[in-house]
Design a protein around this nucleic acid. Structure first.
Length: 589
RNA sequence: GGUCUGGUAGCUCAGUUGGAUAGAGCAACUGCCUUCUAAGCAGUCGGUCGUGAGUUCGAAUCUCGCCCAGAUCACCA
C-alpha cells in the first residue's frame, strides 16, 4: 500500500503541484457487494482539485493501474475507486505473518483483576472480571509488553468478622474436611448465616418498639462483630488464629476456582498487609501542598478545579480511607515492578473512584499515573434482576462452570462426537467446550456494557459461539490428519496461483490478525479479537465448502498444497487467538 | 440536582480516524449430508440506528437540546 501512496504523491506533485497526497488519502477495504479489494475515497481530493469525484477516481485509477503491477484493475462507483489487487500480494503477506508473540518491547505493565473478598465464594461478576483482566494481560503480552498479573485480596474488615462470628456461634467446629464443602463456600455459608441472624434480631428489636434505624445500629450480633474487628486490629491471638484459619480455607477455594477458569497471578496483595501503607504518602502530599489539613485534623484534597469533589484522604482520628489504601498499594506496586502503565480491572460502579485516584497520583507527581487505566466493565444482571449475595441470588462461579461442563457433555454425547475417546479425553473435551463457551460469551461483549445473563441462552452451541470456532479448528485438524495419512505435505513454495474468491477472502482475513490484535490490546478490549475470530471461522467455512481438497474432481497438486497450507495457517491463527482469550481448541470434536 | 455510561432487527450483539444500499448470530420459515466433521453451508423474513435540531459532499458515528435505563456524588470497601 505504501507504493500506491507514493504513486499518488508523485501524480499530485506533477499534475497539480500539490506537495503531499497523504492528508487526503483514505484507504478502506472494499465492501463485499462491490468488485475489488481496496478502495480509495476521492471526496477529500475534491476540496483541493476542482474536479468531480468520478473524474478523479478514473484518473487515479489509471495512474495506479499503469504504475503498479499489484493493481490488476479498477472500477469507479460514485466517488469510490475500487482496486483489484493481485492475490499474490496478499499471499506473500500471509507467508510473512506469524501467529505468535511480538518481540519484547521493553514496556512493563501491571494488570490487576479478580480482587475478591474472603467472606464468600467467587460469582459471575468475578468471572467476567477475571476473564477480562486475564485476556487483556495476554493481549499486552502478545504485543510485546512485560506484564505482571496481580490481585488484591480483601481479607480484613467488618464483613470478614461477620463470617467468623457466625462460624463461632453456629459452626460447631465445622471445617472443609468435616463438611466436604469447598472452603470458600463454607465460609460463605456463615456469611449468610450472620445476615439471617442479624435480620432476625433487627426484627425482634423492632417488635419491642425500636425504630428500624436504631435496631440496625444496635443489633447485638453487629456489636459483637465490631468488637471482633477491634480485637483483630489489636492483634488478639484467638481472633487472629480464627481469621488465619478461615482465610486459608477461602484461599484454597479461590485457587481451585481460578485454576479451573484458567487464570493465574504473579503476585497477590493482601489488604491486611497494605491497608496502612498509604498513610506515609499523606505527609508527602501535605509537604507538596497537594493535600491540606482541616481544623479537626482530617486531611483533604480539593479536586473541584478538575470537575471532581473535595475528597478525604485521612480521617481526623488519623486512620486511612479506601483511597489512601489505593494510593499506598499503587506505590508499593511501583516499587515491586517499576511499571510504565497499570490496568485496574474493576466494575464501573467505581468509575469515579479511579478518576480521583489517578488524578491524585498525577498531582503527587508520578509519571506512570498518566498511563493508569481503569478497565471498567458493566455489571451482570440476571433476567430476574440484580445479583445480591446476601439474598442468595448470585450465580456461583463453581456452579456455573460445572453447569457449562454438563451442558457440553450432554450436547456432545447427543451428537455422537465422543466415539473412540477415553473417558479422560471426553471429559477434557467437555471442559474445553463448556468453559470456552462461557468465556467467549462473556468476552465478546464490549466490557463497558452491562449484560443480562440468561443461563439457558448463554449455552448455545451454534452461530456466534466458541463452539463454532472450536468446531472449525477440529475440522481443519481432521483434514490435516487425512493429508498426513495420504502422505501429503503442505510446504507451500510461494508459487503464484489463480485463487478462488473464497481462497483470496481467507488469505485477506488472515493477514488482518496483527492489526486486530494491536487494536484489541491498545483499546483493552478482547471483544475485538472475539469478533475477528468468529469472522475468520465463518470465512474459513465458506472456503471449506467452496474449495475442497479430497473431493472429486481433485484439484491439481499445487492447489492441494496451497489449500492445505491455508488450512494450517487458519488453524495456527485460531489456536493462537483463542489462546489469548483463555479458550482452548480441540483436535477432534 | 451534578457527573459518568449505555439506548442499533422480536432477542443477544458488531459497526475502525464521519464514507457506498446499517451487518452477524438466535428465534421463525425454505433448500443442501453415498460423508475432506451438517455444532456446517446457501437462502427468506425482520430497521424512522431513543428523539428533535445542527455541522458536512456524506452522520449510527461529531455538536447541542430532550426522553429512557444504569452507576456514582460516604470519615463504606
Amino acid at each position: 500500500m505504501e507504493h500506491l501512496n507514493a504513486l499518488l504523491n508523485q501524480h499530485l506533485q506533477t499534475a497539480y503541484s500539490i506537495e503531499s497526497a497523504e492528508p487526503y488519502i483514505q484507504w478502506q477495504e472494499t465492501r463485499p457487494e462491490f468488485d475489488g479489494d481496496l478502495t480509495l475515497v476521492t471526496f477529500p481530493f475534491v476540496k483541493v482539485i476542482k474536479k468531480s469525484p468520478e473524474a478523479l477516481a478514473q484518473e487515479f485509477g489509471s495512474v495506479l493501474l499503469q504504475g503498479s503491477t499489484s493493481v490488476l484493475g479498477f472500477n469507479v462507483v460514485k466517488g469510490f475507486l475500487n482496486l483489484t489487487i493481485a492475490s499474490q500480494d496478499f499471499v506473500q503477506t500471509l507467508q510473512q505473518t506469524s501467529f505468535s508473540h511480538l518481540p519484547n518491547n521493553g514496556k512493563k505493565m501491571v494488570v490487576e483483576y479478580c480482587s475478591p473478598n474472603t467472606n464468600k465464594p467467587l460469582h459471575l461478576g468475578h468471572v467476567r472480571n477475571n476473564l477480562l483482566g486475564f485476556s487483556v494481560a495476554n493481549l499486552h503480552q502478545s504485543v510485546g509488553s512485560n506484564v505482571a498479573k496481580v490481585q488484591v485480596i480483601n481479607d480484613r474488615g467488618i464483613h470478614i468478622c461477620k463470617s467468623m462470628l457466625a462460624w463461632q456461634k453456629f459452626g460447631n467446629g465445622e471445617t472443609p474436611e468435616s463438611s466436604g464443602m469447598k472452603g470458600d463456600h463454607l465460609v460463605g455459608k456463615f456469611y449468610v448465616a450472620y445476615d439471617q441472624e442479624f435480620k432476625r434480631q433487627v426484627k425482634s428489636l423492632m417488635e419491642s418498639g425500636i425504630s428500624q434505624e436504631e435496631a440496625e445500629a444496635n443489633a447485638p450480633i453487629l456489636l459483637e462483630a465490631r468488637e471482633m474487628l477491634q480485637k483483630w486490629e489489636q492483634g488478639d491471638a484467638d481472633v487472629m488464629h480464627l481469621w488465619k484459619t478461615m482465610n486459608d480455607w477461602v484461599f484454597k477455594g479461590f485457587e481451585a476456582t481460578n485454576q479451573r477458569m484458567g487464570v493465574s497471578f504473579d503476585k497477590n496483595y493482601y489488604e491486611s498487609q497494605t491497608y496502612l501503607l498509604g498513610k506515609k504518602y499523606v505527609d508527602f502530599g501535605l509537604e507538596k501542598g497537594v493535600f491540606y489539613r482541616k481544623d479537626d485534623g482530617s486531611v483533604w484534597i480539593d479536586l473541584t478545579a478538575d470537575g471532581l469533589d473535595e475528597k478525604l484522604v485521612l480521617r481526623k482520628d488519623g486512620t486511612s480511607v479506601y483511597i489512601t489504601q489505593d494510593i499506598g498499594t499503587a506505590l508499593e506496586r511501583f516499587e515491586d515492578f517499576h511499571m510504565d502503565a497499570m490496568i485496574y480491572t474493576v466494575g464501573n460502579e467505581q468509575d469515579y473512584h479511579f478518576k480521583v485516584l489517578f488524578n491524585i497520583l498525577e498531582k503527587l507527581g508520578f509519571e506512570w499515573a498518566k498511563n493508569c487505566y481503569h478497565l471498567s466493565y458493566g455489571m451482570i444482571e440476571l433476567p430476574t434482576g440484580k445479583m445480591k449475595s446476601r439474598e442468595g441470588t448470585v450465580v456461583d462461579a463453581d456452579d456455573l462452570m460445572q453447569e457449562m461442563f454438563e451442558v457440553a457433555k450432554e450436547r456432545t454425547s447427543e451428537l455422537g462426537k465422543i466415539e473412540g475417546l477415553s473417558e479422560q479425553e471426553s471429559d477434557a473435551l467437555f471442559e474445553m467446550i463448556g468453559l470456552g463457551g462461557l468465556k467467549y460469551f462473556l468476552l465478546k461483549v464490549d466490557p463497558k456494557k452491562k449484560m443480562v445473563f440468561n443461563p439457558e441462552e448463554s449455552i448455545d452451541t451454534q452461530g456466534n459461539t466458541a463452539t463454532f470456532i472450536q468446531y472449525v479448528h477440529a475440522r481443519i485438524k481432521s483434514i490435516l490428519r487425512k493429508a498426513t495419512q495420504e502422505g501429503l505435505n503442505w510446504e507451500y513454495s510461494g508459487n503464484a496461483l489463480e485463487l478462488h474468491p473464497s481462497e483470496k477472502d481467507l488469505v485477506k482475513k488472515l493477514i488482518q490478525f496483527p492489526q486486530i490484535r494491536w487494536d484489541a490490546a491498545h483499546q483493552n478490549n478482547p471483544g475485538h479479537l472475539c469478533n475477528y475470530i468468529y469472522d475468520l471461522a465463518k470465512t474459513y467455512n465458506k472456503f471449506y465448502t467452496d474449495c475442497p481438497i479430497f473431493k472429486q474432481p481433485s484439484p491439481d497438486p499445487e492447489t492441494v498444497v496451497f489449500r492445505l497450507w491455508l488450512n494450517q495457517k487458519t488453524a495456527d491463527c485460531l489456536k493462537y487467538a483463542t489462546g489469548l482469550l483463555g479458550i482452548g481448541v480441540p483436535e477432534k470434536m
